[in-house]
Design a binder for these strands. Structure first.
Lengths: 352, 352
DNA sequence: GTTAGCACTCTCAACCTTTAAGTGCTAACG
DNA sequence: CGTTAGCACTTAAAGGTTGAGAGTGCTAAC
């Protein structure tokens, strides 16, 4: 059955209304507030039909209707009216982004905070996948006691570090030497491709084989995000939404967000091309809980991936608001990075 | 009024019973299970008296009695019977600690996990106060684009790093030079005392003044724990305790634990001397919520502070269990570090 | 296709009743 | 004088009843 325009209109009203009030919507309330030119009985017929199509459900006969996940998906695709942020909100974004130093590690926290604050939902953010990045330089710093600090710089300026152990009898000069040699091997390689050169690198490297081994193991670890790479902000915000007056739901939610690994899986989707990505309820694939929605956006600016950001909350989520915020934050971020790039270029020219 | 032995015995029974069952305890249940040689009426008299002394409260006349915070404090001081961990639990500790590389950053996560798992409460851990540590070395690594990475090694082998910006026109050799000079200034200084030498260091330092400024600012930041220094494990464990079937309580709890800053304040007490520290309910001082208890222990081994670890949960907490776990984990940790130190010493001797 | 009208269903809150638990008090006991 | 049995009293929790209110589905008429 093709959806008539009126059906669409009514569905839109139901979803809008339910998003705003969290109360099942009745035929009467529709004719009173929105569709004053038809009677409630007519609307009732349409509602029954929409229910048959799978867009609406009722908890019980006298309870009004509630949108199904399918309805939300349709709403986002076709019905939703985009809003604009208030100038207050825009100011807030500007203020939050203008102040601080902006390496990715700090940026990710500010952005997550802004998103949570503006949407009133819990925000999750994750640094870009490291796999695609190329290693720019790699150094080993002596720490004494048979350990060294491994510092890696990638093309995207992201830094990661970890300890590795080195032979007890390795002196500082020797370490420096090894550091330079190993650095040369990996410079320009993609992190994700370290595995492929593993054999070769090890066989070439009689002298510092053990150190090489450690470095490779560390590099391999970087393909998986560390706990610190996943940022969670505003967990307590869920209590602002009535579905979380039920402990059972809070329990579900808290269990999901308390594991950074799980969070990483949830917000790291197939977002290579998609700019904004909405998962509603148990879409089957990921381990998003049944009663949750996740909206994510992957930002990049100036050819640089800035990470994936998102919002997690009840299925009855204010999608227009959330999507508008995500878009505006994306724009602001782009401006920020571009203006910085420009500065940097100016600086470099001055340098010449 | 002096507490008779029988009063103490009864108070102990009440607390034990309430900790185990979460049900207000009645005079009848006491005489049935524990004090079979007196009648319930006698116990009733004692209970009334204990209530008058402030150790017990009742929600309503026919509801049995519940220990007050004061009772828990007394219980921990005088009444509690220490248990021992099962050999299973001891094995578990051993297994968890034996496997991995143990710089403090990783250690803190494993320890927190072990504590949460064994106690069945939410565990919080924080790295040692950096203020008292002395700087062992300090280096600046070039990152290009007018930024450098600051790497600091302290006496305790804890490493911390952050980006600072440097003049655009500063070459790599120059940076290396600055790094060495600045390093010399701070080597051997306590982190907490950076402020004191600030003026002096800056005035001495015409040439690299700007870089010095940045380094000092970064060093000053380190007196406050970073978010990454606070580890939270097993947040979802609170749902295993009946007090958190009430959303209001969960809300309180989640709000507290969702800010790492607040968590740091809570578990960082005046634990210079005290080995195990119990805060019950709103002790007035910190921002522990009214309905929560926090038990913390600060570990050190081989002269090295290994951080503060704790458990946060309902006032009706299984103190004997929690304290036993904290003690055993402390012992295990000490063994681990000592055996490592021994290895290291052996290694150094071999080196000579 | 739309509408008025009405019977039907269901929830929710208010109220009552009963039951069970546990106490406080009093008077008697050894 | 501490201990005890006995009993009246209080309260929460559970179950049942009722009435009001909300909303629907259906039918017959427009």
């Amino acid at each position: 059955m093709k959806m008539s325009d009126r059906k669409k209109k009514i569905l839109q009203i139901v979803v809008d209304e339910y998003i705003n009030t969290a109360v099942p919507v009745s035929s009467k309330s529709i004719t009173e507030k929105h569709l004053t030119d038809v009677s409630s009985a007519t609307v009732r017929n349409e509602l029954a039909s929409l229910e048959e199509l799978g867009y609406l459900t009722q908890f019980h006969t006298s309870g009004g209707r509630v949108p199904s996940p399918q309805a939300y998906r349709f709403y986002i695709e076709e019905l939703m009216e985009r809003g604009n942020l208030s100038s207050q909100d825009l100011d807030y974004i500007e203020r939050m982004f203008s102040s601080k130093s902006h390496d990715v590690e700090h940026l990710i926290k500010s952005v997550s905070e802004v998103i949570s604050e503006l949407t009133d939902y819990t925000s999750v953010a994750i640094t870009p996948h490291a796999e695609a990045e190329t290693i720019r330089s790699l150094s080993l710093l002596p720490c004494g006691d048979g350990t060294a600090l491994l510092v890696i710089m990638t093309s995207e300026r992201i830094l990661r570090d970890s300890f590795i152990s080195i032979p007890e009898n390795m002196g500082e000069e020797e370490l420096e030497n090894a550091s330079k040699m190993i650095g040369k091997i990996f410079a320009g390689k993609e992190l994700g491709k370290v595995k492929e050169v593993e054999e070769e690198a090890l066989s070439d490297f009689g002298q510092y084989r053990q150190v090489m081994r450690e470095v490779i193991d560390a590099l391999k670890l970087y393909t998986r995000p560390r706990d610190e790479d996943v940022v969670l902000t505003g967990a307590e915000k869920i209590f602002n939404h009535p579905e979380y007056e039920d402990v059972e739901n809070v329990k579900n939610f808290l269990t999901v967000i308390s594991s950074k690994d799980r969070l990483a899986d949830i917000i790291e989707g197939e977002n290579d091309e998609i700019q904004i990505n909405v998962k509603i309820g148990s879409s089957g694939d990921s381990d998003v809980p049944d009663d949750c929605s996740v909206v994510t956006a992957t930002y990049s600016a100036g050819g640089k991936n800035l990470g994936t950001y998102g919002v997690i909350g009840p299925i009855r989520m204010d999608y227009p608001k959330v999507i508008t915020v995500l878009e505006n934050v994306g724009k602001a971020l782009e401006d920020l990075v571009n203006s910085k790039n420009k500065d940097r270029k100016d600086g470099n020219e001055r340098k010449k």
